[in-house]
Write a protein that binds this DNA or RNA. Structure first.
Lengths: 339, 339
DNA sequence: CCAATATCTGGGAGCGCTCCCAATTCTTGC
DNA sequence: GCAAGAATTGGGAGCGCTCCCAGATATTGG
């Protein structure tokens, strides 16, 4: 297949380069007859404009970068990331943008790439999922003027000047905690992940739920974990001797691990210990028992992140956009509310 | 931050555009003194070459596309894909290439994008994970002359002329089957996924293992499934009434679903039914019981796919490269071999 | 029917690089 | 000490597009 150029197509259609360009970019001031003829030729030749030339001339690449800094091997296995990636990829394609993926293993890689990402012009904007407390990535790209949006709340100091799309983790955890209280449980444990902002917010919501009912927080019933099944299992093993009646796990993966730990000790869910998760992953509905959990709209968040970023690119970075999506409690068997 | 150009850097270093270009691209014929001066200026300014201009002039983008056609929402949740993506992203960055991700939902999207991917010059090469029997994607890009590598064996008709990186699914399933036979099991079931080539190969290996021991295949003990936990659960439910002594599940996700189904029927693994999986996902080692499974080198396969693709790009598409990686059996508790 | 305006079209300039060739400078050998 | 050759360096051309302006053509009103 020949590599056609605008000029070629123009010649074949009997018009100039510029006219073909106008047709392709849907600019006004082209007569319907000409437009049709050109479109015909484009269809017949299978012409595709050269993206490099386009980028160079228009100084925009129509490529969006998705950056996930310093993920542990296991952390990335959480289906959460797969869903985020999928949603963003979808949204990009829908808006005729190309998604590029940057998964970094360590700070050195981040540093090396941040400059390139920000100033080679390869990428029009960045979506960053850097809500771990110690991630430096956002600080590294802020000095550059590349548009970016964070998924998840940034750390407090910088939150106001950074655009982000988040889900209402605090409210979700509040719902989860309140639900367990409503079921009559009093010794309620939590498996928490405090090294990212989502975990902190969920922790805050959980505590507020207990406070609102006048229940003191028993710190011995709070176990720390990372966002993985195995780590949820371990955390639950620590909690078991303290005999909680119920546990709020900060993610579904953690909840699944916790359930496994409970069953391995020959206890039943929810009869002996009730469990609530967070995320509503596909797995949650079909686990044994089906998991009561807080549904967060991951796909919508991803889509909104892309659209917010495009808005920033097309209009102006100021003011920073802050979007917080509502979540809902999905009640299933694991919390003892349904048989 | 100013957007520097080669010309700017040249002026600052007292040399010409061309010399700076030579330094950046590590071409020979530059005096050490000049080279050092230029590198100094580049460091001070933070200059990054404009990728669009580079692509246009050199007609290569240093972008690799990763295409995953028509994945169901749930299929993508399988950590397998996350690991593949991670490995490929890593390998790209290592080789100074940028990975782009194309997840397609349906055939229409595939058709629309295949042409663009193949002939806009945006992408230097493609890695395709299209081993489902009915995927048309490979056929759609074959007419173009864009280099591509498939992960997983292509369908028979086209396998010889397509470069691919695969793992030895047949041998792995043979190992799994033989292992169960060696444990003394005779009524051995299989949960199979036949709509992709990996599943077919695993099926063949499993059957060969049984055949080699003179055991007839009981088709009633073979249940069909897709690559998901939930679907493994359902398949196992079908198998349970037939009372298999052991089950070979074609993936770890399926195996986990099967184990859940077995336990939900108040049977034990491995005492009542032994289970072997395939993949050796991170989860497999820490499940209850730990899963005997066939370890496939996903990260290595991803890395090799990238490197094979780069080799094709840099040298020639001919002859087609065929790489089949060995797998190994990892024996854990679920097959009854260890206490 | 022609001037005035609105609509359409063509071509020059330029985006920031790479590639190539010619010009310049530096070596080296006899 | 000077020619022949090798190592450096500079600048033109061009990659395929977009953007803009000027010229051509069509449309309208008086």
């Amino acid at each position: 297949m020949k590599r056609w150029t605008l000029e070629d197509i123009g010649k074949l259609a009997g018009v100039s380069r510029s006219t073909v360009s106008r047709v392709i970019n849907d600019h006004p001031h082209t007569s319907p007859a000409v437009r049709q003829r050109v479109e015909q030729v484009i269809r017949e030749t299978g012409y595709q404009p050269n993206s490099a030339a386009r980028s160079l001339a228009s100084s925009q690449s129509r490529i969006l970068g998705l950056v996930m800094p310093s993920l542990l091997q296991s952390a990335f296995a959480d289906p959460y990331y797969a869903l985020v990636i999928q949603a963003i990829s979808q949204a990009c394609i829908q808006h005729d943008y190309t998604p590029s993926l940057f998964l970094f293993q360590n700070a050195a890689e981040e540093a090396k790439m941040s400059q390139r990402l920000a100033s080679s012009g390869l990428i029009d904007g960045l979506i960053v999922t850097a809500d771990t407390i110690d991630s430096q990535f956002v600080q590294m790209i802020q000095p550059y003027d590349i548009p970016f949006v964070q998924i998840g709340r940034p750390q407090r100091e910088s939150a106001s000047c950074i655009s982000y799309v988040d889900v209402d983790n605090e409210a979700g955890a509040y719902l989860a905690g309140s639900h367990l209280l409503q079921q009559g449980y009093r010794r309620i444990g939590q498996i928490a992940t405090l090294h990212n902002t989502a975990g902190q917010d969920r922790d805050a919501g959980f505590r507020r739920a207990l406070n609102d009912r006048g229940l003191p927080i028993d710190e011995a019933l709070i176990a720390l974990s990372s966002f993985s099944e195995a780590s949820g299992y371990r955390a639950m093993q620590h909690l078991l001797p303290r005999q909680p009646e119920a546990v709020f796990a900060q993610s579904d993966a953690i909840a699944l691990g916790a359930i496994r730990a409970i069953r391995d000790s020959d206890l039943r869910v929810p009869e002996d210990i009730a469990v609530v998760g967070f995320d509503d992953m596909p797995l949650a509905a079909s686990s044994s028992p089906p998991l009561t959990t807080v549904r967060q709209p991951i796909a919508r968040a991803g889509k909104l992140a892309v659209e917010t970023l495009l808005d920033i690119i097309q209009t102006s970075p100021q003011p920073a956009r802050h979007i917080v999506l509502p979540v809902e409690l999905v009640i299933r068997a694991s919390s003892g509310a349904v048989s």
